[in-house]
C-alpha cells in the first residue's frame, strides 16, 4: 500500500494495484478511486459489467487476456502518456505491450495537421525511439493506440458482432435450412406413396364402424332416417363399399399444392367440393 502511494507513474500504480487481485480490498479501492478522480471518470458503479470485470481481473495477471484495438482519439488532450519503465521486474502486461507495439505509429490525421502548425519545432525523428515510443515531452495520449483491458477473450463477456462472421453464419444457416426442407419433401413423398393404400384401407374400416355405430345407437326412427340421408353418412357409405377412393393430386397450374382427396372410382372425378389451395402467408 505504501509502495503504491510512492509511485509517481499512474500506469505503474494501476498495474501494481491489479496485481494484488480484484478491487475488493479497502486499499485497492482507495487507490483506484484516486486514479479515477484524477482522470475525471464517473464514480464506480456496482453493475453487471463491473462485476464481470472484477471476476476476470485475476486472469489479466496470469495470461494475455486483453487484445489490442485500433487507435482511437480521446477527448482529454492535456493528459501525457508515460511508457512503462524498463526493468527486470516489469509485469507481463508491460512486456506484451512493448512486444506488440507497432514500430511506426502514425498519429491521427488531425493530430498531424495540429503538429505541423503548432509543434513543428518540437517534433523529433521516430527512428530515435526504436521501441516505438514517442518522446514524452511532445506526446499526448490522444494519438496513442489504446490498449483496452475491458475486452476479454473469455466467452463470459459480450463481444461486438463481427459482420463478416455474421454473414458466414447466415449463409451456413440458409444452406442447412434448404437441405432440411428438401429432406422433408422427399420423406413426405415416400410416405405418401407407400401409405396411400394403407390409408384407404383404414378409411374403409372407420367408415364401416361409423355407419354401424350410428345404426345401433340412434335414439328413434326419425333421427335415424335424417342421419342416413345426410351427406356425411352418404360419403361414409361410399367409402366403405369402395365406390369412392383416395386419390393423390399432383398439383395443377391452379392448385400448386399437392393433396390427397376423395374421387369416384368409376369416373375419376373428385367427390365433394373442389380443393382450393390457400397460400400460407401473413397479409
Amino acid at each position: 500500500m505504501n509502495s503504491n502511494r510512492c509511485q509517481t507513474n499512474e500506469v505503474n500504480k494501476f498495474i501494481s494495484s491489479t496485481e494484488k487481485g480484484p478491487f475488493t480490498g479497502r486499499d485497492n479501492t482507495l487507490s483506484f478511486n484516486k486514479i479515477g478522480s484524477r482522470l475525471n471518470s464517473p464514480p464506480i458503479l456496482k453493475d453487471k459489467i463491473e462485476l464481470k470485470f472484477l471476476q476476470h481481473s485475476e486472469d489479466l495477471n496470469q495470461s494475455r487476456s486483453y487484445v489490442n484495438i485500433r487507435p482511437r482519439t480521446l477527448e482529454d488532450q492535456s493528459y501525457k502518456f508515460e511508457a512503462p519503465n524498463l526493468n527486470d521486474n516489469e509485469t507481463s502486461w508491460a512486456k506484451d505491450f512493448r512486444y506488440n507495439f507497432p514500430k511506426n505509429v502514425e498519429p491521427p490525421i488531425e493530430n498531424q495537421i495540429a503538429n505541423l502548425n503548432i509543434n513543428n519545432g518540437l517534433r523529433t525523428s521516430q527512428t530515435d525511439f526504436p521501441l516505438g515510443f514517442y518522446s514524452q515531452k511532445n506526446f499526448n495520449i490522444a494519438s496513442f493506440p489504446v490498449v483496452d483491458h475491458q475486452i476479454f477473450k473469455t466467452t463470459g463477456l459480450e463481444h461486438p458482432i463481427n459482420s463478416h462472421i455474421d454473414s458466414l453464419i447466415n449463409a451456413e444457416f440458409s444452406e442447412l435450412e434448404a437441405s432440411s426442407l428438401e429432406e422433408d419433401v422427399h420423406t413426405e413423398e415416400e410416405n405418401s406413396g407407400t401409405s396411400l393404400e394403407d390409408e384407404e384401407t383404414a378409411m374403409k374400416g372407420l367408415a364401416s364402424d361409423i355407419i354401424e355405430f350410428c345404426d345401433n345407437n340412434s335414439a328413434n326412427k326419425d333421427v335415424k332416417e335424417r342421419l342416413n340421408s345426410s351427406k356425411f353418412m352418404g360419403l361414409m357409405g361410399s367409402i366403405s363399399d369402395g365406390s369412392i377412393v383416395l386419390k393423390k393430386d399432383n398439383g395443377t397450374e391452379r392448385n400448386l399444392q399437392k393433396h390427397v382427396g376423395f374421387c369416384f372410382q368409376n369416373s375419376g372425378n373428385w367427390a365433394g367440393l373442389e380443393f382450393h389451395d390457400v397460400e400460407d402467408r401473413i397479409a
Partner: peptide, 16 residues
C-alpha cells in the same frame, strides 16, 4: 385423412 375420421368416430362413441 384417416386420423380425422378416427377422431369423428371417437367423438361419436364418447357422445353416446
Amino acid at each position: 385423412m384417416s386420423q380425422r375420421l378416427q377422431s369423428i368416430k371417437d367423438h361419436l362413441v364418447e357422445s353416446a
